[in-house]
């Protein structure tokens, strides 16, 4: 997915069928942390990163969007992305979370926790080639 999220992606709709890298099929609302960890392990070339939310503010560039500031991976690199408030992120050990759980429920019928500073989200990156 691009760094800034596309609008209304149907793969977040409750009931959407997701294929894990192991080939297993699960509904988006049933996914667990381990599903992402295991999928990254069996996917060649992709790596899971822990991305901690360090700041959440209204986007200056794009009205109506939210700027999420992360520190990503071991290098704690700073990355900022602009997303719609209802865009869900998978938080380790917690599940789906967004800046506006009410809007996420309206748009995708997906139950969410409120995304907060300090939450550690699942993100992916390319594995460094030796």
């Amino acid at each position: 997915a691009p760094a800034s999220a596309p609008s209304n992606p149907s793969h977040f709709m409750k009931g959407a069928i997701i294929q894990l890298a192991t080939g297993e099929l699960k509904r988006v609302e049933d996914l667990q942390t381990q599903d992402f960890v295991r999928s990254a392990e069996v996917s060649g070339g992709l790596k899971i990163d822990s991305s901690m939310v360090v700041d959440i503010r209204a986007s200056q560039q794009k009205p109506g969007l939210v700027s999420l500031h992360f520190t990503v991976g071991e290098q704690q690199s700073k990355v900022t992305i602009d997303v719609p408030p209802e865009h869900p992120f998978f938080v380790f050990g917690q599940g789906w979370s967004s800046c506006s759980p009410e809007r996420t429920a309206q748009l995708y019928d997906l139950a969410c926790h409120p995304l907060q500073v300090g939450d550690v989200c699942v993100s992916i990156t390319l594995q460094q080639q030796p």
């Binding site: 149907s10 793969h11 294929q19 988006v28 991305s51 992916i124 990156t125």
Partner: peptide, 19 residues
């Protein structure tokens, strides 16, 4: 019924991207 890959659900936050 469409089937989506697991990695379409999570952001690709490449460490090289910084503020």
């Amino acid at each position: 019924v469409p089937v989506f890959p697991w990695h379409s659900l999570v952001p690709f936050l490449a460490p090289t991207q910084s503020d």
